[in-house]
């Protein structure tokens, strides 16, 4: 894992469960991917727990190629960002 991302996750701003989840998902990910995810986490630190739930659902939907489940995930993502954009 990119050290900057590891340091960010260690800051204690996220729950132990979220830390363990992201640690397992990002431990062997290379630089460009880590860097993009760090920027996203840094931008939306309050959403790291929500992103974790979405990530678990994405893994399941992509594994089973379940389009219906995927579309629900994407709809929820779009609504979440829509709400964020309105609060800016």
């Amino acid at each position: 894992m990119n050290k900057k991302l590891e340091d960010f996750l260690k800051t204690g701003r996220i729950s132990q469960d979220d830390y363990a989840f992201w640690r397992s998902r990002l431990e062997d990910v290379s630089f460009a991917v880590c860097d993009s995810i760090l920027e996203l986490f840094d931008l939306l630190p309050d959403k790291i727990g929500w992103l974790r739930i979405m990530q678990e659902r994405k893994e399941a939907a992509l594994a089973s190629k379940n389009n219906e489940a995927w579309e629900k995930i994407v709809e929820e993502e779009a609504s979440q960002f829509q709400a964020l954009s309105l609060s800016v």
Partner: peptide, 25 residues
Amino acid sequence: GALEKFQGKTKRVITLGLVGLSLLA
């Protein structure tokens, strides 16, 4: 569409981050 109101860099960071997470998933 949902990211339209975000400006350049923010929109780019969110889009790239989401693509990265989905590829990882």
